[in-house]
Design a protein around this nucleic acid. Structure first.
Ligand SMILES: [Zn+2]
Ligand SMILES: [Zn+2]
Ligand SMILES: [Zn+2]
Ligand SMILES: [Zn+2]
Lengths: 164, 164
DNA sequence: ATTAAATATGTTACATTATAACATATCATT
DNA sequence: AATGATATGTTATAATGTAACATATTTAAT
């Protein structure tokens, strides 16, 4: 499984390597879980990882279609459901978009920093955040099933750039 | 302005009072900001507060129509935009639904506990959560504009009930 | 009071996101 | 080869949200 990556991808890194690693990880997760990593599913995951920012379902659909595949919305949503179930991608509710998980296979509740300017996303897995949220919940007798923690703002790269 | 309410509304409380208070608060906020608290806007806010759970835009639309008002989607979305701008309602991204703000007028980033069983929502304003999220962000050079922190699970009431 | 500007609402049409339902194909097992 | 399980194709539609332009209402000047 791949190492933990920095919060935001560094501008100059070899992203092809990230994609390859993500696909290899996915293959391994599927094998371990007895799930089929079909061409469609692999291609959808690859498209998500190749993109520098989260992709909407219909953006993925458009891509598949330009590749000559016969694709309809259910094609994409089924693949996305599958990938989510296996923890290979996350859905960002505030964007209606999907991004690759940086720690597939491990059970986790993540937090997301989303740049309003360039769209880049950092997936955090901060125990401190989860801890304080859990404390707040249990002190009110609430049992947490799932968290959706998404923070919009400006990433370091965009903050450096002049105004705009 | 109304006092800070408990996390989850107690089952036996007088909810009409909550609604009246929310409308009064809204009127006051609008006056202070020089905004018009029109019939439509008041009615949308009232519907949201009267509901025991967050309302979708088209649920609100249906209500308005049964009251004989000529209403189309833009009618509702405009009112919702207005109410959000003034901090009178919040949009829950994970539900595509809207709930009344428990502390209107004050600038704040809230967190929401959402019961999967009964739909009830608790709006929290935990400084500790905001603090640790902010720390995580700034340590990565990220400037926060807005948070969307929504936690799905089971509320105390539903937890007490037998299985289901 | 009259006019003009700003604000709010009505109305039609459409864009975007997601799912239901059923047919067909592919894969795994016997 | 036959069977059941899983995956995909296909059509249609549901659910959520917005663009654009016309009309009405309120507010502020004249
Ligand atoms: Zn993840
Ligand atoms: Zn950025
Ligand atoms: Zn609030
Ligand atoms: Zn409940």
């Amino acid at each position: 499984m791949s190492e933990i990556s920095a919060a935001f991808p560094s501008p100059g890194h070899n992203h092809d390597h990230c994609v390859d690693q993500a696909l290899a990880d996915a293959r391994s997760v599927c094998r371990r879980r007895g799930a089929r990593f079909t061409e469609q599913r692999a291609r959808v995951l690859e498209l998500i990882w190749q993109s520098h920012r989260p992709l909407g379902a219909y953006q993925i659909l458009d891509q598949l279609r330009t590749e000559g595949r016969s694709a309809q919305p259910p094609t994409v949503y089924r693949a996305l459901d599958f990938l989510q179930d296996l923890g290979l991608v996350h859905r960002l509710a505030s964007l209606n978009a999907y991004c690759g998980c940086v720690a597939p296979g491990a059970q986790h509740q993540s937090q997301f920093l989303i740049c309003r300017e360039c769209g880049v996303v950092a997936e955090l897995r901060e125990q401190a955040i989860l801890r304080v949220v859990t404390e707040a919940a249990v002190s009110r007798g609430f049992r947490i099933d799932e968290t959706s923690i998404e923070v919009a703002g400006i990433c370091p790269d965009c903050a450096r750039k002049p105004s705009r």
